[in-house]
Design a protein around this nucleic acid. Structure first.
Lengths: 123, 123
DNA sequence: TATTGTTATACTCTATAACTATA
DNA sequence: TATAGTTATAGAGTATAACAATA
């Protein structure tokens, strides 16, 4: 928790945290508004607002679902992908600087720990 | 970041995140309102409100600084300490369940990684 | 009828600006 | 004058309730 707090506070970007978080959800595939709301742990009306704001910023686009007329499909625009990559690069840079001073053995321990935690979190 | 997200979302307590965070800052010693605002990355008026809400809930108490009449010193009450302990226990429990399935070697790797990251974050 | 999403409305958290009290 | 904190006011983000459109 302390590490994540430091990264959030110190590698701060132009994007509000909940905006960053939604862009990250869209990385792999377009997603319905409802699914986004579930994953972000907010109610549908809140996500409607957040998506409207991201659409205004041209970071995401809405398209209709050809199979189901009720559904709103949200996808990253090119600008959205670029923004996501930039923000992630800032976080990576913050961490890279701090890991440089470690020994190879320490870095190797962190690599193994990361693999373990990825499995833990995937469950 | 993904681990911290899961812990926040799934080990959810009664306390709003920014309330939890302020209580955690007060764990070791009473703190001025201004210092709290700095550490929580909010402006003084926001912290005035947050502290007022915690005072209403009797989780913190305000006392005057004997040396400087301008300063408001904020400290945990007994109820605040108990609340903090309870919330932390929930987070610990969430994680403990997930670490039980790991081998001893894997758990040892995580212990060593934790020590390394504590040094990284302390800088 | 049930589901997906939006609109209306209110509450909370945040901020900036202006103010009070103390140094 | 400068600093610590509060009050006034406004802008986001969130929620619930009521609604529209589609299945």
């Amino acid at each position: 928790m302390r590490v994540s707090r430091r990264v959030r506070f110190e590698s701060e970007g132009e994007l509000a945290p909940h905006h960053f978080s939604v862009l990250a959800q869209l990385k792999d595939a377009p997603t319905t508004l409802g699914a986004l709301a579930d994953r972000e742990q907010v109610r549908a009306p809140s996500m409607t607002r957040t998506v409207a704001s991201l659409v205004d910023a041209e970071l995401v686009a809405r398209t209709a679902d050809p199979q189901d007329g009720r559904v709103a499909l949200i996808a990253l625009t090119e600008a959205g992908e670029a923004m996501l990559a930039t923000e992630r690069a800032k976080r990576d840079a913050w961490m890279s600087v701090r890991l440089e001073g470690l020994t190879s053995a320490e870095q190797e321990t962190l690599r193994r720990a990361t693999e373990i935690m990825e499995r833990v979190v995937a469950r």
